[in-house]
Design a protein around this nucleic acid. Structure first.
Length: 201
DNA sequence: TCGCAGATATTCT
DNA sequence: GAATATCTGCGAG
């Protein structure tokens, strides 16, 4: 499998968010491979995006969003949850894609173990995904383009018709002011399963 | 199905 | 020193 390189990430955030759908997120722990298909992602821009950490100003926490693409940005919220983001755009331009959900593929048992034995909905939320793959702040700022601890591989080819796009408002989370911001991409699990059965296109 | 508690890093005053 | 945050789990209805 081919690991996605910096030229994939150093493009407009919305394009990267769209293209990440169907890719395979791989986490290596010891010598075990945990992987899953990315089925939901959300773009966070630097400007005009009130929901983005980078919309206000550069701080020690969000500075990684201003760096080169293909880097991991992990942060901690609500006193108990980690969020996994991938930095996009070339060095100097802020942008990141929040990975919200994956569809587990390899070593699912290991993920369930890390989710305290909860075998249902293993990684269908941003914080659950981090738990299942043991993503913590120690992965913050590491390079996603080399096969060290975590990376992204070419996965399934998802037809555009199966990729949904919508506003972040009213779908699942808190009210959003930028109503035209269609920054959220996802694929229905039914369609995803169909793609998995058919194999790479 | 819905509403709220939970517990801390980071930022703001 | 105080408020807020890219959410999840659980308990009530």
């Amino acid at each position: 499998m081919e690991i996605l390189q910096p030229d994939f990430y150093e493009r407009p955030t919305l394009v990267v968010a769209h293209d990440l759908i169907g890719k395979s997120l791989v986490r290596r722990i010891e010598d075990i491979r945990l992987s899953g298909i990315i089925c939901e992602a959300e773009a966070y821009l630097g400007n005009n995006d009130s929901a983005s950490h980078a919309s206000r100003k550069k701080t020690p926490r969000n500075s990684v969003m201003f760096g080169p693409g293909g880097v991991v940005y992990v942060y901690f919220v609500y006193g108990m949850h980690f969020m996994f983001n991938i930095v996009t755009e070339p060095d100097g331009i802020a942008g990141a894609v929040l990975i919200r959900a994956i569809y587990p593929q390899e070593n699912i048992q290991e993920m369930i173990k890390r989710r305290k034995g909860n075998a249902k909905n293993i990684a269908d939320g941003p914080a659950k995904l981090c738990q299942a793959l043991d993503i913590t702040k120690k992965l913050n700022r590491i390079n996603l383009t080399e096969p060290t601890e975590i990376w992204v591989e070419e996965g399934l080819k998802i037809p555009d018709a199966f990729i949904n796009r919508g506003p972040r408002v009213g779908i699942q989370y808190a009210a959003e002011k930028d109503q035209q911001a269609l920054y959220r991409f996802w694929v229905e699990s039914d369609n995803l399963q169909k793609m998995i059965l058919e194999g790479p296109a």
